[in-house]
């Protein structure tokens, strides 16, 4: 399949090379004027540390482990995301979540540890798609850098809190949660935020 190349017939003015040079210089000068009169905030360049690009809604950035309004984690430790992960960066350990056994008549699982190695993660979004409970989201945060490898190994509490400041939610920490668990009121499914 050949492509028919159309030969462009240049006029003598264009072939003189001088006139096209002037045209080109006019174009660059127009760009110059436009750029120099545009305020910094409206230029194409986003000056990164001072300004940040707003990511589109579908962007797959840093993960968040979602939680219910009462602060309980949505994840049920079904291992679907761990299986779906092509980079094998998710490692979950499940535990029994036993006090619901008495209140609601069933036992639940929850992760005792939920780790994502951000150095291995390729941000493909497979975990998000695999999750039956909508518990893991990939959101718009993209500044993932650290001075050592360990700090990029995100644990459960890190993942719960990744967007806490952005959403204006209180940060949860293990120290707050562990004493709170036994003293949780047993007659209601909903409760106030532990913080």
């Amino acid at each position: 399949m050949g492509v028919i190349v159309k030969k462009v017939e240049l006029t003598w003015l264009d072939r003189s090379y001088v006139w096209p040079v002037f045209k080109g210089m006019a174009i660059t000068f127009r760009h110059f004027l436009k750029q120099i009169t545009t305020p910094t905030s409206k230029r194409f360049t986003i000056q990164y540390p001072d300004m940040k690009k707003a990511m589109p809604p579908g962007y797959r950035g840093l993960h968040e482990l979602k939680r219910f309004e009462d602060g309980a984690i949505k994840c049920v430790a079904c291992f679907m995301c761990q299986e779906a992960c092509p980079a094998r960066c998710i490692s979950i350990e499940a535990e029994e979540f036993s006090e619901l056994n008495f209140t609601q008549g069933f036992e639940e699982k929850r992760p005792s540890s939920f780790k994502i190695d951000m150095l291995r993660c390729i941000f493909c979004g497979m975990c998000e798609e695999a999750c039956p409970k909508d518990a893991i989201w990939l959101r718009n945060e993209y500044e993932l850098a650290a001075y050592d490898r360990l700090s990029l190994n995100f644990g459960k509490w890190d993942l719960i809190n990744t967007y806490a400041t952005v959403d204006g939610k209180a940060r949860l920490a293990q120290s707050q949660e562990s004493p709170a668990t036994p003293s949780r009121p047993t007659n209601s499914g909903h409760q106030a935020d532990p913080a």
Binding site: H31, F32, R43
Partner: peptide
């Protein structure tokens, strides 16, 4: 800086 402006960039700042 001038080349940056001519090419819709910002240049060293």
């Amino acid at each position: 800086r001038g080349s940056a402006m001519l090419q819709d960039r910002i240049g060293p700042n």
